[in-house]
Design a protein around this nucleic acid. Structure first.
Length: 179
DNA sequence: TGCACGATGAAC
DNA sequence: TTCATCGTGCAC
């Protein structure tokens, strides 16, 4: 497998989101195949954390591409994001589900369980995804992915932005959190 | 300094 | 539909 470079992340968020499907998320010995993601398009996207400006929590979103943005939701689960586009654009892709490949087991559907299974928590917030500890890689044999587009989950407060088709998942995968 | 509220997940 | 659980952000 081949680790993705900075240039992969430094592109339109929707493109990065789609192309993350089928890629491998690697944290140490743990490897999962990404099967579901959501795109958050920056400050004008009312569903994005960055929509309300720069804060201590969302700071990684405003940084350069290819870094992790990890935060706690509902006091019990961590959500893992990948920062995209140029520094200051404040966009990211939320990783929602992976298919276990090696080093992990159990439940991996949904952003909270994905993070738990992969051993990702706030210590990895702001971590460089070009590091050897945590990164995304292209598998040696990349099978073609049939992509399904759906509205994002849990963003009903975002008005018209809640309806946009910014959730992407691998058609037919039984590891997707919701159809 | 206090408090309402989530980019969730599982049970009822 | 409800609950567990707590850091963050913004109102006092």
């Amino acid at each position: 497998m081949k680790k993705l470079g900075r240039e992969f992340y430094d592109r339109k968020t929707v493109i990065v989101a789609r192309e993350l499907l089928g890629k491998l998320l690697v944290h140490g010995r743990r490897i999962g195949r990404i099967v579901e993601v959501e795109a958050y398009l920056g400050r004008h996207d009312l569903a994005a954390h960055s929509a309300r400006g720069l804060t201590k929590r969302n700071a990684p979103m405003f940084g350069p591409p290819g870094y992790a943005y990890v935060y706690l939701v509902y006091g019990m689960y961590y959500c893992t994001n990948v920062v995209t586009e140029s520094e200051g654009h404040a966009s990211a892709v939320l990783l929602r589900a992976v298919e276990p490949v090696s080093g992990i087991g159990g439940r991996t559907r949904g952003p909270g369980l994905l993070s738990a299974a992969m051993g990702i928590d706030k210590r990895l917030n702001g971590h460089d995804l070009l590091s050897d500890e945590l990164f995304v890689a292209a598998p040696d044999r990349h099978e073609p992915v049939d992509v399904v587009r759906r509205p994002r989950i849990g963003v009903g407060y975002a008005g018209e932005w809640a309806e946009k088709l910014l959730r992407f998942y691998v058609r037919g995968s039984s590891f997707v959190s919701r159809k």
